[in-house]
């Protein structure tokens, strides 16, 4: 059994997926840009005018990292879940399953493409935000690290959802019922210090808190939890997803009968 990775195979899947996004380029960029602009107008300008600074940062600037995270999470999950769900649904997956590609190569191709798309989108949103508030990024490398780690982790989660879902409803259910609420409750629009003590504790069970907090630290050097804890939690979450995906390929769950 050859252990070497087939880069041609990964490349084929990756390019295929990126081209698919290219066909709906306008839609996949414009809609997040518009919704980000709306968030700024509503939260930044309208509400932000009445909220004093948070952690010494203007409210408009404070919500930038959270907004980028919000899009990054939802786009990673939906890109990756759709990317693998669609060939299952259209049955074109037969070609992937009968090709001499390993599980790792399939994951690299699909998750790599989904994560790339959402990182690009995150950067575009950051650019949009810069139109509304002056951007300040204290730790650009950490910022990129978080961006990539989060995109990969949530694309892995999306991949799992795309395998698990047996219909379009389920495909949309998880992002709608889990990802979006967790993100909104994860400190996107507020600092968790602003919550009552009990809620502060409960909030710490939400993995998104660590992502938003760590990401925000890379901008303003201020965070709810230590940046190391944030990185650690992201790594743990990624590991959990990898273990599940390993199991999926080992058993052929929902891919091979």
């Amino acid at each position: 059994m050859s252990a070497a990775m087939s880069f041609e195979s990964i490349k084929a899947i990756y390019i295929f997926e990126m081209r698919r996004a290219g066909r709906t380029l306008l839609q996949s960029i414009i809609s997040p840009v518009i919704s980000t602009a709306l968030y700024f107008i509503v939260f930044g300008a309208a509400i932000g005018g009445r909220i004093a600074e948070v952690d010494g940062i203007s409210y408009g600037a404070f919500i930038v990292p959270g907004l980028v995270m919000l899009s990054l999470l939802t786009q990673s999950v939906s890109n990756a879940s759709f990317g693998i769900f669609f060939p299952r649904f259209a049955k074109t997956i037969y070609e992937i399953l009968s090709a001499p590609v390993s599980a790792a190569e399939i994951v690299f191709g699909y998750v790599g493409a989904a994560a790339s798309k959402s990182v690009i989108l995150g950067l575009i949103i950051l650019g949009t935000a810069a139109l509304f508030v002056p951007l300040q990024i204290d730790h650009p490398f950490v910022m990129i690290l978080f961006l990539v780690l989060t995109a990969v982790t949530f694309s892995l989660l999306g991949f799992i959802i795309g395998i698990w879902a047996d219909g379009f409803e389920k495909l949309q259910l998880v992002p709608l019922l889990i990802i979006t609420p967790l993100t909104f409750l994860g400190g996107t629009f507020y600092s968790i210090d602003m919550l009552p003590p009990l809620w502060q504790k409960i909030t710490l069970l939400n993995p998104v808190v660590y992502l938003v907090s760590g990401f925000r630290w890379s901008f303003y050097s201020a965070s709810d939890v230590s940046v190391w804890v944030s990185l650690g939690m992201t790594a743990v979450f990624m590991l959990v997803c990898l273990v599940i995906i390993h199991w999926i390929f080992k058993t052929g769950y929902r891919m091979k009968s």
Partner: peptide, 22 residues
Amino acid sequence: TTEAFETVWDTVTFSRGLFGLD
């Protein structure tokens, strides 16, 4: 079971790539 939006050339090229060939 085919793609819908791909061209014939692209889909066949994709298949070859999937098999790790240049």
